[in-house]
Write a protein that binds this DNA or RNA. Sequence first.
DNA 1: CGCGAGCTTGATGCCGATCAATGCATGTGG
DNA 2: CCACATGCATTGATCGGCATCAAGCTCGCG
Lengths: 245, 245
Amino acid sequence: MNAAHPPLKLEPFKIACSSCNLRELCLPVGMSNEQLLKLDSLVTTRRTVARSDTLFRSGDHFQSLYAVRTGFFKTCVSSEDGRDQVTGFQMAGELLGLDGIGTDAHTCDAVALEDSQVCVIPYHQLEDLSREVSDLQRQFHRIMSREIVRDHGVMLLLGSMRAEERLAAFLLNLTQRLQHRGFSASELILRMTREEIGSYLGLKLETVSRTFSKFQDEGLLEVKQRQIRILDSEGLQKIVNGAGV
Amino acid sequence: MNAAHPPLKLEPFKIACSSCNLRELCLPVGMSNEQLLKLDSLVTTRRTVARSDTLFRSGDHFQSLYAVRTGFFKTCVSSEDGRDQVTGFQMAGELLGLDGIGTDAHTCDAVALEDSQVCVIPYHQLEDLSREVSDLQRQFHRIMSREIVRDHGVMLLLGSMRAEERLAAFLLNLTQRLQHRGFSASELILRMTREEIGSYLGLKLETVSRTFSKFQDEGLLEVKQRQIRILDSEGLQKIVNGAGV
DNA sequence: CGCGAGCTTGATGCCGATCAATGCATGTGG
DNA sequence: CCACATGCATTGATCGGCATCAAGCTCGCG
């Protein structure tokens, strides 16, 4: 009875939140093993997105959320008149697509900045399951709320900080998130261009470049193109707070 | 048997989402009458907030969301070093407190800009009920998602627009929301100071004032302190898009 | 009436945008 | 393997928009 045997060999690495090493960062936070099995039955597909390809575009019909499994993304909104703003950079364990819930259509583009993989989370099934599993409901709400809080932080940055302060805050935020994922706190490779950093921070790429150079002259950083080594993170922190104003 | 009679006269206007004239703007959107009765049993108290008083402060323990019933609020975040950023202005039907869900503590201050009333929505009860009533769940998620989308719009504004464009966008947004609430599309009274507008838009109060004057000179507006009459909303819209760049 | 909070307006200066040229790494085709 | 193209980054010179500093104005209120 061959047919009775599922073709296990074709899926040697089953997709399962319950055994995912990102489960302490992602949607599964706070869920029991039993609950995780239910989540497993919902998150059954992955999608591969090549560098510079889009996961979704503004206007696309909204159907699923995506959890970054590997790789790195940016999200950007654009206005009718062609203005463009990077609204965030997402790394492993972070969710993409929350913007689409409100109107059933995505309102930003999500672009992979390196070859990436995402787990597909069908939204209506997530709604159904989160009515059943209150720990899932709670974590999902927390994630949305934190996204709002993060956005408020960016507003503060864009509304009241100067170029150096913005870039210092950006670098500290990046390294902090990388550190949570087990990477070095002092060395990182930027996945985005100066222009994308500038768009996120409300600066022009030349200003970003000049500010990197200035930080390097001051002994805060070592900059080699996209390779950054942080030499004095306390110094950066002082810049974020109003040192020199 | 006097004791058997509840003291109805003391609550002549019962608090009830089911009979609230804001139910088409607020949490009840999309719910049936039957479902609304359940929501009524959850939203049982109102709170009055006098002008310039705070509804909650950053750091306060998070327990409830608040729906603006009457009045007008601002929310602002501040950094350790004393920087301050208005992150939004809220009017009737809009929700306050979503920032608190993520960490069980509020991350911004909510300040009444005029004498106001809010409906108190105990958050854990809302979670419970939204597991039962999927239409409530859906609307709650939509509201959070739209807040994220709104925030992205503010980032675009702060990151890529010039002073005139920002103020024009701000005024059009305000009048549009007021219009949804049955107010005039062309006349409004600002509830906030120039400084608060400036903080929201990432500008200094002098720049806000000058830009108002410029708009007036150009025949787009009539400005008398906080009374604004919009004379040419299409002209404002052209400014928001890149007219003059 | 006089005080103070908030608004307007002017003069000046600075930060970051803009324009422009060069440098550097990667990749491609002859 | 080199010549060249291309995309991204750096650096310099100049310019302009908004901040800053400063003064006077308006209006509501004790």
